[in-house]
Amino acid sequence: SEEWVEIALRLLELGREANINGTILNLHKEEIEELIRRLLKRI
């Protein structure tokens, strides 16, 4: 399964939302940290 691709796409999506909203992603901080942890486990 290409889970890391899904994770990377989700991170990009959150990054785009952050640019549009001008936020520092506090809302998504925990989700982002969890996604990155899952991503690093696969490398």
Rank of each mutant, 00 (worst) to 15 (best):
E2A: 13
E6T: 09
K29I: 14
L12W: 10
A18R: 04
R16Y: 09
E33N: 11
I43K: 03
I20W: 11
E30P: 03
L9P: 00
I7C: 15
E33V: 14
R16H: 07
E31T: 02
R16S: 08
L14I: 12
E3W: 14
N26T: 06
K41Y: 10
T23W: 13
E30D: 13
K29Y: 14
T23E: 12
R38I: 05
I7E: 01
I36S: 00
I36Q: 00
S1M: 13
S1C: 15
G22P: 15
R10A: 07
E30M: 07
E17M: 14
N19Y: 14
E13H: 05
K29E: 07
I36V: 06
E13A: 10
I32E: 00
E31P: 02
G15S: 09
N19G: 08
E30T: 07
S1F: 13
R10E: 03
S1K: 12
I32G: 00
L27T: 08
K29L: 15
L25V: 07
R37F: 08
E3Y: 10
R37C: 14
E34L: 12
T23C: 15
I24A: 07
R37H: 05
G15M: 15
L39Q: 00
K41T: 08
L14F: 05
A18T: 06
T23K: 08
G15H: 09
L27R: 10
E17I: 09
E6C: 15
G15P: 02
L14C: 15
L27S: 13
R37Q: 04
G15T: 09
L12N: 01
E6M: 13
L14E: 01
I7F: 05
W4P: 01
A18H: 06
A18S: 07
R10Y: 10
L25I: 10
L40G: 01
R42V: 13
L11G: 00
E31R: 02
I43P: 03
E13T: 05
R37K: 05
G22Q: 10
S1P: 09
I32T: 01
I36H: 00
G15A: 15
L39M: 05
L9K: 04
R10K: 06
K29C: 15
E34M: 12
L9M: 08
R37T: 05
H28E: 07
R38G: 03
L40W: 08
G15I: 15
R16Q: 04
E33M: 14
I43A: 05
I24Y: 05
T23S: 12
N26L: 14
E2L: 14
I43W: 13
I7M: 05
A8G: 04
T23F: 13
E30F: 08
L14Y: 04
E2S: 10
K41G: 05
E30Y: 05
S1Y: 13
R42L: 15
G15E: 02
L12S: 02
E31G: 03
G22K: 11
I36K: 00
G15N: 04
E3N: 09
E31K: 04
R10N: 02
E34A: 08
N19R: 12
A8S: 04
E17H: 09
A8Q: 02
L9I: 06
E31C: 15
W4I: 08
E6H: 12
R37G: 02
N26H: 11
E33K: 09
I36C: 10
L14T: 02
N19K: 11
K41A: 11
E6V: 13
V5E: 02
E13K: 06
R16C: 15
N26E: 13
A8N: 01
I7R: 02
N21P: 07
K41E: 06
E33F: 12
G15R: 04
